[in-house]
Design a protein around this nucleic acid. Structure first.
Length: 1095
RNA sequence: GCGCGGGUAGCUUAGUCGGUUAGAGCACCCGGCUGAUAACCGGGAGGCCGCAGGUUCAAGUCCUGCCUCGCGCACCA
C-alpha cells in the first residue's frame, strides 16, 4: 500500500508551508495528542509570554525546546496536552499604553480615567497576538492556542483571588513597609527588573558629617552619598567587631578643597582602617576600641526639628549592625529610616522613629528646615552642604568648624527612572508581602526534588536565591493587574475575598448594613476600578475600602498551574491530577521570575512543589555575543530564516549549536550551514531511494528481505543506526539534545550519505530485479524511517514528508524507535517497567564487529588516497596490487576496498616485517608508578631506542631493565609503521589497549593493461561530465567519437567499458594518427591528449 | 562588591579519570573525487588552551590569585 513516489527537487520553504496546510486540514496536532489518549499523562506547562511585543528568535528557541520534549514524549506514548497561555497584566502593558497615549504619570492616567486606561490595556494585549500565533504555527510549535489560559480573564483572576485568600487565611499575607526605588515624577515604585533598565553612572557630592556626641567633646564621622537623607537621620550604625579610633586633630590641613573642615584639637571617631583615606588633617590617635563600646551613645540631631522623637529611646544614638564594613565611608553608617532598606530594617528592629522628611512628590515636607521645606530633594544637595558646613551646623550648636568635615565627588551607578530619566529615590512605602521566610525550609525541600537541567541552576543560582529568600513584596501601586482582594477599614479590620460569590455576599451584607454599593453581578469584572467601588463592612460593621494595589504580575503567572483550569471552581480534579507538572522550560532569566513564583505560590497555597523537571535555557545573543534587545536593534527576525532555510533548519541549528543551557550566539550563517549539510543531504538520500523505489515499484510491505541475508554493507548501516539511535535517546534523557543531534547529523551525513549511499548507488542502477537491490531498498527504507522518527521532535517538517511518502503515515503518529513506555500498563511520567519498555523498541540488530571492521575499511580507503597523492599517482590509474598489513580479517570488504583503492587485487601480507617496522612508546599510566621521578628518563630511553625490535624482544623475554625499572609489555605501546621506501601508510584504529596499527601498501608498477584501464576511466569521467553539462536524461544514449595522442594502448575491453558506462549507442575510436577535424572537447592526462565529441 | 557560568585557530566549538602529537566544522589556499549535493576526500596554513603562580614524573584538565565577558544579586552607607 505504501509505494513511495518519486521525490522532486528540494524547496524547503514550499515543503513546510504546504505541510502546515495539510496538518491544519488533518488537525494533526490534536490527533497526535488524542491518539495517545490511553497513554500515561506527561504534564507540560506553558510559561505564558507577554504578547505586547513582536516575537524574536529568542522566543523561537524557547518554544523549540518546549516542543521538542513534548513531541518526544508523545512519540513515547505519553499523552502530552499542551494548553497555550498569555500573560496579559502588569507594567509592561501599562507602559506600552502610556507611551502610545502619552500618559506618562499617574496623574495623567487618573485624569484620563482608570476605566479608559485599563480598557486600552486590555485591547493592547492583543496587538501582537497575530504575530505570535503566526510565528508559533510557522515554527510548528504544537500548542493549543485556541483554548489558552489568559491571565486577564475573570476565571483566571478569580483563581488568583482564591489563592491569595489561602495565603491570607494561613497568615502568610501581611501589610508592611518596604523601601523601594521610587520615581516621584511618575509616582511609581519599580521592581528590580525595571530598576536594572535605568542604571546610570553619575557623579554626585558625597559628604563626611560630624555627629557631635552629647556626653563627650567628640564627633562621630559618617559618610553619605545622598545628602538629602541627612535631615531624616535618626541613628548611626557601627560594626560591633570593627576597630575604631579616637583621633585628635593636631595640625590644620593644607590645600583644603571644598566645604567643611575641622579645628585643631577637635576629636573625631571613625574606623581605624579608613582613617588614612578619610582624614585630611594630621591627627594623633588617642584610643583604639571596638564598635560595640560605642553602642548606646547619644548624639545631637543634625536637624533637630525634622523628625519627632515620639518616645523613642534609641533615636539619635549609636546602634550596632553586623553588615557595617570598612570597605568605604568611615565605618559608621548614617541611618535615615525611611530611605534605605538596611536603614529601615535596622530602624524597625531598634525602635527608631519612622517618619518621612520627604513627601511622595519628592519634596521635603514642611517642618524639615526653613531652607529646605517644599523643595525637590535632589536639588537640595548644596543647601544641605551649606547648612552643615556653616559654623555650628544647621542648628548653630555644633563645633565652630561646622558639622561638615569634607565633601567629595563620588562616581557611582545609580538607578534612574527608565521612563523619565530622573534619579529614583529609595523610599519606604506601604506594601503587601507574602511571608516567604516562613516557608523557606519547604521551598528548599521542594527544590531538592526538582530535576534541573543544568543541575547547577537548581543547586547553585536558584538554591542560593531560596536560601536567602525574603518576603515577597507582592503589591504594586498600579492600575492594570489582578486587584489585591483585601478590604480594610480605618480601624484596621480586614477581609480577604476569595471568589466572586464571596464578593457578592459581602457586598450584599454591606448593603444590608446600609452602605451604598454599585450592583455586583455574577459576571462582575474583577479589575480596577470596578472592584474599587465596592465598600464592604468589617466584623464590627465599619466600612472597608479595597486596598488599592494590584498584584505583581509574576504572581499571576505563578498561579498558572491551577488558575489555567479555574481551580478550584471547576471542581478541582483537573489540577489535582496534573500537579505537580512534569516539565517546564524557559530562559534562565526566569530563575528569579517564573521558576520562583511557581514554586512560591505552590508552596504557600498547596504546600507542594509546582514542577518536577525544569529546563533552564541560556540567553540568546547575537552573532557578536551581545544580548538581543529591542533597544540595541539586534533582534533577529525568525521569518528571515523561516522564509529562507525553513523552520526545520532553524530549529535543528538552535539545538545543535550548543548545550541548551549555554548562551547561544545566533549566527545566521549557521542556519544556512545546517540547511546545506543536514537537510539537503537528507533530502538527497531520500530522493535517491524514493526515485528508484518509485521506478521499481518497491513496496516495503509487499516484499521482505531477511536482515541476516543482506550484504555486510546493509548490516553495517543498520547496526550503525541502532548504535546511533541508542546514544541519541540516552542523550535526550540526560538533556544533552545538542550531543544527540550532532551525532545523528554525523550519522546521516557521514555514514549514510557518504558511505552507504555512495557505495550502494550501483546496486539500484541495475534494471533487473535482484535480491541485493531489494535488500538495499529495504535497508534504506528502514534507516530513513527511523532517522525521521528520531528527528521528528526536533525538526518536524521534512521528516514528515519523507515518512509519509515511505510509509503512508505521518511521523507524528509513529512510535519512538526506542520504545513507547507511555503506553505501558501502570506507567507514569516518572516510572515504568524498563524491560517491558525495551520490548517495544524497534531497532535493527547490533553488530559491533561489523562496525569496527567498516571503520577500518573506510580508514584504509582514505589512506589509499593519501598514498597516491604522496606518490604522485592519479586516482583513476589502477594499481595492480594492494597489501594490507596486520589488522582483522576484512575479506568480506575486499570488493569495496578494491574499488575504493582502485586496485586490481587485495592481499593480506602476513609477514608484518616485510613492509612494517616497529616503534615503542611508553605507556605513562603503567610506567609512572614504577619509575616515579625517573619516568621521563625511562620514557626517553624507550622512545629513542635505536633497535626497537631488539628492545621488544627483551621486554617479551622479561629481561628488560632500564634505570633499575623492569619493563613489561604493559608498560609500552607497540606501534607499527610502514618501512621507508614503499608507497605505504600506516593508520591507527581505536585507542588504548585495543588500538591496532594497519599498514596499506600499494604496488606502483604500471602495465599496459593498467594504463589502458586508467585511460578508459579518465575518458569516461570526462564524457559523463559532458553528459551532465548537456543536461541529458540518465537513460539517454549518445554518439561518441574519440581521438588519442601519445596514448598507451586502449584495449578493446576498455573501449567497450567506456561505451557501456557512457551509454554510447555508437562509438568511434580513431587510430592514433588521426586528429579531429571539427570542433571537439579535449583534455590531457599524464602526457596523453584526448579529444572527444558527444552527440 | 558577592554568587553562577564562560574565555581553546579569523569565526563557531569538542576535549572523558590529569597521560604521549589539543580534535572538528565554517572561511581561506592547493590537490583530488563526483551520473553525487550547496555534498565529499587528501593536504596546507592558522593554537602562549585569558594571564601569573602552585601541586605533579606529567596540567587545556586540579588548586590559588588576577584579567576579561555574560548573567543573577546587591549597588549599599
Amino acid at each position: 500500500m505504501a509505494q513511495p513516489k518519486a521525490a522532486g527537487e528540494l524547496d524547503a520553504v514550499g515543503l513546510e508551508t504546504a505541510l502546515l496546510e495539510a496538518w491544519k486540514q488533518e488537525n494533526a496536532f490534536q490527533t497526535s495528542v488524542d491518539s495517545r489518549s490511553h497513554g500515561a499523562p506527561f504534564i507540560f506547562l506553558e510559561g505564558p509570554p507577554t504578547a505586547n511585543g513582536k516575537p524574536g528568535i529568542h522566543h523561537v528557541v524557547a518554544r523549540a525546546y518546549k516542543d521538542l520534549v513534548c513531541r518526544w514524549k508523545t512519540m513515547e506514548g505519553f499523552q502530552v496536552k499542551r494548553k497555550g497561555g498569555w500573560d496579559t497584566h502588569g507594567l509592561p502593558v501599562e507602559i506600552e499604553v502610556q507611551k502610545r497615549m502619552d500618559l506618562m504619570s499617574n496623574e495623567a492616567i487618573e485624569a484620563f480615567g482608570m476605566d479608559n486606561f485599563n480598557k486600552a490595556c486590555r485591547e493592547s494585549v492583543w496587538t501582537y497576538e497575530t504575530a505570535w500565533r503566526e510565528m508559533t504555527e510557522r515554527m510548528a510549535y504544537w500548542v493549543d492556542l485556541d483554548n489558552p489560559y489568559v491571565t486577564l480573564e475573570n476565571n483566571y483572576v478569580e483563581s488568583c483571588w482564591w489563592a491569595i485568600k489561602q495565603m491570607f487565611d494561613k497568615g502568610l499575607l501581611y501589610r508592611g513597609h518596604k523601601v523601594l526605588p521610587y520615581c516621584p515624577q511618575t509616582g511609581t515604585s519599580y521592581s528590580s527588573h525595571e530598576v536594572a533598565l535605568g542604571y546610570k553612572e553619575v557623579e554626585e557630592p558625597s559628604v563626611y558629617v560630624k555627629f557631635k556626641l552629647i556626653d563627650e567633646d567628640a564627633s562621630i564621622l559618617a559618610w553619605t552619598t545622598t545628602p538629602w537623607t541627612l535631615p531624616g537621620n535618626v541613628g548611626l550604625a557601627v560594626g560591633p567587631e570593627v576597630t575604631y579610633v579616637r583621633a585628635r586633630i593636631t595640625e590644620q590641613a593644607e590645600n583644603w578643597v571644598g566645604a567643611g573642615g575641622a579645628e585643631v584639637g577637635e576629636t573625631i571617631i571613625l574606623a581605624k582602617d579608613l582613617m588614612k583615606e578619610v582624614l585630611r588633617h594630621k591627627v594623633e590617635i588617642i584610643e583604639e576600641f571596638q564598635g560595640k563600646t560605642l553602642v548606646g551613645r547619644a548624639y545631637e540631631p543634625l536637624f533637630p526639628d525634622a523628625v519627632p522623637r515620639n518616645g523613642s529611646e534609641t533615636a539619635w544614638t549609636v546602634l550596632e549592625a553586623d553588615w557595617v564594613t570598612t570597605t568605604d565611608g568611615t565605618g559608621v553608617v548614617h541611618t535615615a529610616v525611611m530611605y534605605g532598606e538596611d536603614d529601615y530594617n535596622l530602624g524597625m528592629a531598634a525602635g527608631l522613629p519612622a517618619y518621612h522628611t520627604v513627601g511622595m512628590d519628592g519634596a521635603f515636607l514642611s517642618g524639615t528646615h526653613p531652607d529646605l521645606d517644599g523643595r525637590y530633594v535632589k536639588e537640595c544637595d548644596q543647601t544641605v552642604i551649606d547648612l552643615l558646613s556653616a559654623a555650628g551646623g544647621s542648628n548653630g550648636k555644633g563645633p565652630d568648624s561646622g558639622l561638615l568635615y569634607r565633601e567629595k565627588a563620588y562616581l557611582h551607578d545609580y538607578p534612574h527612572c527608565w521612563r523619565t530619566g530622573h534619579p529614583l529615590l529609595y523610599y519606604a512605602m506601604d506594601s503587601w508581602f507574602v511571608r516567604m521566610t516562613a516557608v523557606k525550609e519547604r521551598l528548599l525541600e521542594f527544590n531538592d526534588g526538582v530535576e534541573w537541567a543544568p543541575d547547577w541552576v537548581g543547586e547553585g543560582r536558584f538554591g542560593e536565591w531560596l536560601r536567602n529568600v525574603k518576603d515577597w513584596a507582592i503589591s504594586r501601586e498600579r492600575y492594570w493587574g489582578t486587584p489585591l482582594p483585601v478590604w480594610r477599614s480605618e480601624s484596621g479590620g480586614m477581609k480577604c475575598i476569595g471568589s466572586i460569590e464571596e464578593l457578592r455576599a459581602e457586598v450584599a451584607k454591606a448593603v444590608a448594613a446600609g452602605i451604598e454599593n454599585p450592583p455586583c453581578p455574577e459576571d462582575v469584572d474583577l479589575h480596577r476600578p470596578i472592584v474599587d467601588a465596592f465598600t464592604l463592612v468589617d466584623d464590627g460593621g465599619k466600612p472597608m475600602q479595597r486596598e488599592t494595589f494590584v498584584m505583581d504580575c509574576w504572581f499571576d503567572s505563578g498561579c498558572a498551574p491551577f488558575a489555567q483550569w479555574h481551580h478550584p471552581f471547576d471542581g478541582g480534579e483537573t489540577f489535582d491530577s496534573s500537579s505537580p507538572v512534569d516539565y517546564i522550560c524557559e530562559g534562565v532569566d526566569q530563575t528569579r521570575g517564573w521558576f520562583y513564583t511557581l514554586l512560591a505560590v505552590s508552596t504557600t497555597v498547596f504546600d507542594k512543589p509546582a514542577y518536577k523537571r525544569c529546563l533552564s535555557l541560556g540567553l540568546i545573543l547575537d552573532a557578536e555575543g551581545k544580548k538581543m534587545s529591542k533597544s540595541k536593534g539586534n533582534i533577529v527576525d525568525p521569518w528571515d530564516h523561516f522564509n529562507r532555510e525553513g523552520a526545520d533548519a532553524t530549529r535543528w541549528y538552535m539545538v545543535t549549536a550548543g548545550a541548551p543551557w549555554n548562551p547561544l550566539k545566533f549566527d545566521p550563517n549557521g542556519v544556512r550551514e545546517t540547511y546545506g549539510k543536514m537537510f539537503l543531504t537528507l533530502w538527497n538520500i531520500y530522493k535517491f531511494h524514493a526515485d528508484y523505489a518509485a521506478l521499481d515499484g518497491f513496496d516495503p510491505e509487499a516484499t521482505t528481505s531477511e536482515v541476516n541475508e543482506r550484504s555486510s554493507l546493509d548490516r553495517w548501516i543498520l547496526s550503525r543506526l541502532a548504535t546511533t539511535a541508542k546514544s541519541y535517546h540516552a542523550d535526550f534523557v540526560s538533556w544533552n539534545f545538542h550531543k544527540a543531534c550532532r551525532d545523528l547529523e554525523e550519522f546521516v551525513v557521514n555514514d549514510l550519505s557518504n558511505w552507504y549511499v555512495r557505495r550502494s548507488r550501483r546496486r539500484l542502477w541495475d534494471d533487473a530485479e535482484s535480491k541485493d537491490k531489494l535488500a538495499c531498498q529495504h535497508t534504506l527504507h528502514e534507516v530513513l524511517t527511523t532517522v525521521c522518527r528520531l528527528m521528528a521532535p526536533v525538526s518536524p517538517f521534512m521528516v514528515d514528508v519523507i515518512h509519509r511518502n515511505l510509509t503512508g503515515e505521518t511521523v507524528h503518529l509513529a512510535a519512538w524507535p526506542l520504545g513507547t513506555p507511555g503506553e505501558l500498563e501502570g506507567a507514569t511520567a516518572d516510572d515504568w517497567d524498563e524491560v517491558a519498555a525495551a520490548a517495544t523498541a524497534n531497532l535493527p540488530p547490533h553488530d559491533t564487529r561489523l562496525e569496527n571492521s567498516m571503520a577500518i575499511v573506510r580508514e584504509l580507503a582514505e589512506v589509499g588516497r593519501r598514498i597516491r597523492i604522496d606518490a604522485g599517482r592519479r586516482q583513476r590509474l589502477p594499481c595492480a596490487q594492494g597489501w594490507i598489513v596486520a589488522g582483522p580479517d576484512l575479506g568480506e570488504f575486499y570488493d569495496i576496498l578494491a574499488e575504493e583503492l582502485n586496485v586490481e587485487a587485495i592481499e593480506v601480507e602476513k609477514d608484518l616485517d616485510r613492509f612494517q617496522r616497529i616503534e615503542l612508546a611508553p605507556n605513562f599510566r603503567a610506567l609512572a608508578p614504577k619509575a616515579r621521578a625517573n619516568v621521563n628518563a625511562v620514557a626517553n630511553e624507550i622512545k629513542s631506542s635505536t633497535d626497537p625490535t631488539a628492545l621488544l624482544a627483551s621486554i617479551e623475554a622479561g629481561t628488560c631493565e632500564i634505570m633499575g625499572v623492569s619493563i613489561e609489555m604493559s608498560d609500552v605501546e607497540l606501534r607499527r609503521i610502514e618501512r621507508d621506501g614503499f608507497a605505504a601508510s600506516t593508520v591507527q584504529i581505536g585507542q588504548g589497549d585495543e588500538a591496532i596499527q594497519i599498514s596499506l601498501v600499494l604496488d606502483m608498477n604500471d602495465t599496459p593493461e593498467l594504463l589502458s584501464k586508467g585511460l578508459a576511466r579518465d575518458i569516461t569521467r570526462r564524457i559523463q561530465a559532458k553528459r551532465k553539462t548537456l543536461d541529458l536524461e540518465i537513460e539517454a544514449t549518445i554518439d561518441l567519437e574519440i581521438w588519442l595522442k601519445d596514448a598507451p594502448e586502449l584495449f578493446a575491453d576498455d573501449q567497450q567499458w567506456i561505451v557501456t558506462e557512457t551509454r554510447a549507442a555508437a562509438a568511434v575510436f580513431h587510430p592514433p594518427s588521426e586528429a579531429p577535424s571539427g570542433p571537439s572537447e579535449s583534455f590531457e592526462v599524464d602526457g596523453t591528449t584526448v579529444w572527444f565529441t558527444v552527440a
